[in-house]
Simulated scan of single mutants.
Amino acid sequence: MPRVSDKALDAARIGDLKLRAAYEHCRRVNAEHGKTYYLASMLLPPEKRPYVWAQYAFARSADEFVDSLIAPDPAALQTWGEEFMAALAGEGPVPGDPAAVAMLHTTRRWQIPRVHIEAFLESMQMDATITGYQTYADLEQYMYGSAAVIGLQMLPILEPQTPEATARARALGEAFQMSNFIRDVGEDLQRGRVYLPQEDLDSFGVTRESLQAGVVTPMIRELLKFEIERTRRLYAFAEPGIGMLHPTSQDCMRVAFTLYGEILDAVEKIDYQVLTRRASVSLPRRLAVALPAARRAARARKAHRPVVLPTTASAPEEDPERASQPSS
């Protein structure tokens, strides 16, 4: 029986068996751990979906090195990141991690700037030693690498129609990240981290100790309301950017925009009880948003030109091991 990814891999003209296996691994990781992200990716033209799966799985692989509650291993993250960057530069072999194999191919195929990968890896390393951020500006510096550059990495695949889309993509990445921070306050505390700025905690009279007590006090509730409103302003700034993308990309991003934004609604619906509960958008709601969007996306693919892949897409598929070696 054909795999779910086969149609997309065929459409993307990815024929190398090692690459196909790596991308299928990424798809499974995305489907299991990033359901909203995966649902949105399925609205893209098939030939673009594998690259989105690769970006998600690569980010998750890095995250797992430092987010494990049992055995975090920042030294392994450092080695993994250095091996990937060396392979990207043609100075070393492809790492064994299939997410890295697929991301290496994705980065080359879409000419994703190296600095975006470096910024992401730097932020992941920050999680190994930094447990809090004094100001929102400090948190923004972290989010640039952990979230904003994810939006920037996605942009070539989404085909922006104007340079103005760049700032909107960066803001949307931050909005998604802040939504997760607000939802996951309790979970992050288990790892010894607080991603809400200390200056905000101080303003509302909230301490780490009061968060760790697990009871949402009136001060904590007001703090969360403040962070939610700040995040909604990010979404408001980012929203016009969806219309700046190619028509075949807009429904994908509209679904992600809507469902990630509704995480904030879900927090409000559980009365801000994020210290002991996980707010979530229900499956029926996700489907109610995604199914009409899927129909619109199908119409968009018929109405607009076929997606033009980068020039390397028409070249014979490279062996990933040979592609990592410097030219003579």
Rank of each mutant, 00 (worst) to 15 (best):
F226R: 07
M244Q: 15
I228D: 01
E222A: 07
L223V: 11
E229K: 03
A238K: 04
L224F: 14
A236W: 03
F226K: 10
L223P: 12
T248F: 04
E222Q: 14
E227P: 13
T248C: 08
T248G: 09
L223I: 10
F226V: 00
T217L: 09
F226L: 02
L223S: 07
E229T: 10
F226D: 02
T217E: 08
A236T: 09
R230E: 00
H246E: 09
Y235D: 01
P247H: 00
F237N: 12
P240V: 02
E239W: 04
F237G: 09
T231W: 14
T217W: 04
R232M: 02
I242M: 10
M244I: 11
R233C: 00
R232P: 02
G241V: 11
L224M: 11
R230M: 02
R230K: 14
A236D: 11
L223E: 08
E239T: 13
I242Q: 10
A238I: 06
I242V: 15
G241P: 07
I228V: 11
M244Y: 15
K225N: 14
G243N: 13
L223T: 13
I228N: 01
A238L: 04
R233D: 03
Y235A: 01
M219V: 08
R230Q: 04
I220C: 08
A236C: 07
P218L: 07
P247K: 00
T231M: 09
I220P: 13
L223Q: 12
A238S: 10
G243E: 12
R232Y: 06
M219G: 14
P240Q: 03
I220V: 10
A238F: 03
R232T: 02
F226Q: 04
H246I: 03
K225H: 15
I228A: 02
G243Q: 12
A236H: 07
F226H: 13
I220T: 08
L224D: 05
Y235C: 01
A238Y: 05
E239N: 13
M219P: 15
L245C: 08
L245S: 05
H246R: 05
M219R: 12
T217S: 13
P240F: 02
I220D: 10
L224G: 07
H246G: 02
K225C: 13
K225A: 03
A238P: 06
T248P: 06
T248E: 07
Y235F: 14
R232V: 01
R221F: 00
M219Y: 09
R230D: 00
R232D: 01
L245P: 00
A238H: 03
I220Q: 06
E239I: 05
M219I: 06
H246A: 15
R233E: 06
G243M: 03
R233H: 13
I220S: 05
L234T: 02
T248N: 12
L234N: 02
R221C: 06
T248I: 05
H246N: 09
E239V: 07
M219K: 14
I228Q: 01
Y235S: 01
E229R: 04
G241C: 11
F226N: 09
T217H: 10
R221L: 07
R221V: 05
G241T: 11
